[in-house]
């Protein structure tokens, strides 16, 4: 839990801030041509809550924690540790998998909330210092633009991603065969499969939430 959540926070913060800044700058650039810079906060807020927040934080967590879980479980498998647990009549699923599952399920949405805040902060930095917004105007505009459904849909996505990421990582780890090479392959495949599954699911969820 500490590994998946707390120690990933600085990285999540930095990423989210960069994304918030970038979004605001791009939005400002495009919207300026329409004379609609007033909508920059809306764009930052909605994009972050609905899409960029859950997806980018999931990307970080896949690369950081999903791979770590796969490698850790794979190493345990290779060094007979999982077998040893079974022989000690300790169920490896409840001893090893369940805590990781819960940690991921709690921490990914939590990190996403953190990421959303910081991304909006990044958008504020651009609006406040490069555009003609004052702080209150930005906050009001941002809050006005998003409704609770934007937040909830992001959170639902985030929870679904968490479930996908940890399932793929644990599965890859527990099916390792053949020493260090196998651990490496499992780690890679947990990242690749995790990313693909997450992005495809994101497209489906967006279609269901906002298009159907």
């Amino acid at each position: 839990m500490v590994f998946i959540g707390v120690r990933a926070a600085p990285m999540v913060a930095l990423t989210a801030f960069s994304v918030g800044v970038t979004l605001a700058m791009q939005a400002a650039h495009s919207l300026k041509q329409l004379g609609a810079e007033i909508y920059v906060p809306d764009l930052v807020m909605i994009t972050l809550l609905r899409e960029m927040g859950p997806v980018l934080i999931a990307v970080i967590v896949i690369g950081r924690s999903g791979s770590a879980v796969a490698a850790e479980l794979g190493t345990m498998k290779v060094s007979e540790e999982i077998e040893a647990l079974e022989v000690m009549a300790i169920n490896p699923i409840s001893y090893l998998i369940v805590p990781r599952f819960l940690a991921m399920l709690v921490m990914l949405p939590a990190l996403t909330i953190l990421g959303n805040y910081i991304g909006v902060l990044g958008g504020w930095a651009v609006c406040r210092f490069a555009l003609d917004f004052n702080t209150a105007g930005y906050v009001l505009r941002a809050l006005e633009s998003a409704d609770t459904w934007d937040l909830y849909s992001g959170m639902i996505k985030s929870a679904v991603f968490a479930w996908i990421i940890i399932t793929i990582a644990c599965n890859a780890g527990l099916h390792v065969e053949g020493g260090a090479e196998g651990v490496g392959q499992a780690t890679t495949s947990s990242v690749v499969q995790g990313l693909l599954a997450m992005l495809v699911t994101n497209a489906i969820l967006t279609a269901v939430f906002f298009f159907a």
Binding site: E80, E81, E83, A84
Partner: peptide, 24 residues
């Protein structure tokens, strides 16, 4: 089944070749 196997396993000890200690 696994549950009954666990009952049997509680009654014996096993020393693995590499020790198989939990590294964490």
């Amino acid at each position: 089944n696994d549950r009954r196997l666990d009952d049997v396993r509680r009654r014996f000890g096993m020393l693995f070749q590499s020790g198989a200690l939990l590294a964490s």
